[in-house]
Amino acid sequence: MVHRIRFTLPRLLPVAGLLVLLASPYVQAEAPKEQWHTSIATGYGQLVETTEKLNNSARHYCEAPDKAKLDQVKEAWADGFHAWQAVRFVDFGPIQQNSLAWQFQFWPDQKNLIAKKVDAWVEGEQKITVENLAGDSVAVKGFPAIEYMLFDPRLEGKQLALPHPRTCQMLTTVTSLMASNAQSLRNDWATFKSHYLSTGDYGDATVLAAMHALETIENKRLGAPMGLGGSRRNAYLGDAWRSDQSLAALHSSLKGVQQYFVPGLKTLMQNSANQALFDEFESQLARTLERFADLPNDLAAMLEEDNGYRQLQFLYIDVERLSNKLSRDIAPELGVVKGFNSSDGD
């Protein structure tokens, strides 16, 4: 027997409602959302590749330690860390499960929990396994914990620096867990595709994610270390200060916005009255990225002398303008309303 599927036509919308619907930028938003999903998938793919490389490098080093292999681990850490920075703006979808963003990067760490937690594991007697580590704090599961083991001299004073057996076991366990998390994130993002494309709110969520990322760079990742919140200048409030990568991390995050967010936004806004706003935003992003060409990878030394601090001020102004272009000019035109974000507040 052949079963015919019957479709029930919806009631016609009132004319006013129909006009409002047609005016919405998200009526034809499947193309930009498709682009956003594909772009973010590419970024997550880079995260998988670099964390796998980091895990392999750590394992090879600990099997037969030498300086050359340790340098390879540090290089692999930097590659993975910057791949994470590029997709760090994505704050919705699978990354929200099990506090994954915090597992990749516990930050800010104003109480130095990373060092305390790693020390507790290395100095203790508990068996260091992925299963045991998975049940502990996010402070010991991500890039900052590995950074501590690779770059901080504190462990040397305890005679526990790499390649100490327990520190090596901790290193390879964290890198293994992080590589597994990256793989799960990529797979879950692929599964998430149909829901992402079919749910209208995720268009707004993607724009909001970029807004929150730029505001976090402006206020917390750059402004706070510069002392712009009323406190003293403090390099320890920045990202990756142990490895001298705090400014390089900002650059990678902005490059991620350029690579994984901007193309979809362009598709959304092209051939519309908002095209000029997009062009201004894209140009401001390019100018901001160019600013890094004359800057070192870290901001610590720049905070200590006038000329360096002046350069940071110029960078801050560019970031502020970029953030305002998106949140004050573009978002209202798209009907995107800023809401609470998990990174807001303390």
Rank of each mutant, 00 (worst) to 15 (best):
A139C: 01
R186A: 15
W107L: 06
A41E: 09
R221F: 05
Y236W: 13
T216E: 14
P10R: 13
P165H: 11
R232P: 00
L303Y: 08
S327P: 03
T216H: 14
V207R: 05
L285T: 05
M302D: 12
S252P: 01
D79V: 07
G142E: 03
I217W: 11
L113Q: 10
S39N: 11
L133Y: 01
D346I: 03
E333M: 13
V20R: 15
F81I: 00
M178K: 06
Q245L: 15
A76I: 03
Y236D: 14
A179M: 03
W84T: 00
G308T: 05
R59Q: 14
A205D: 03
L265I: 10
M149N: 02
L47K: 03
V262R: 12
N271D: 14
L322T: 09
D188R: 15
L326D: 01
R291F: 01
L113F: 08
M149H: 02
F106H: 14
G157H: 09
S184F: 04
L177H: 04
L197P: 01
Q275F: 00
L265S: 04
V87W: 00
V138T: 14
E75F: 06
D152E: 11
R154C: 01
S24T: 11
R321W: 08
A205E: 02
A213N: 10
G308E: 06
D79A: 15
I40F: 08
A134F: 03
G17F: 00
V337P: 02
L214I: 09
S194E: 13
N219L: 15
F106D: 01
Y316D: 12
V15A: 12
F192V: 12
K325E: 14
W36G: 04
S39K: 04
K33W: 10
A145I: 10
L21M: 08
S243D: 10
F151L: 06
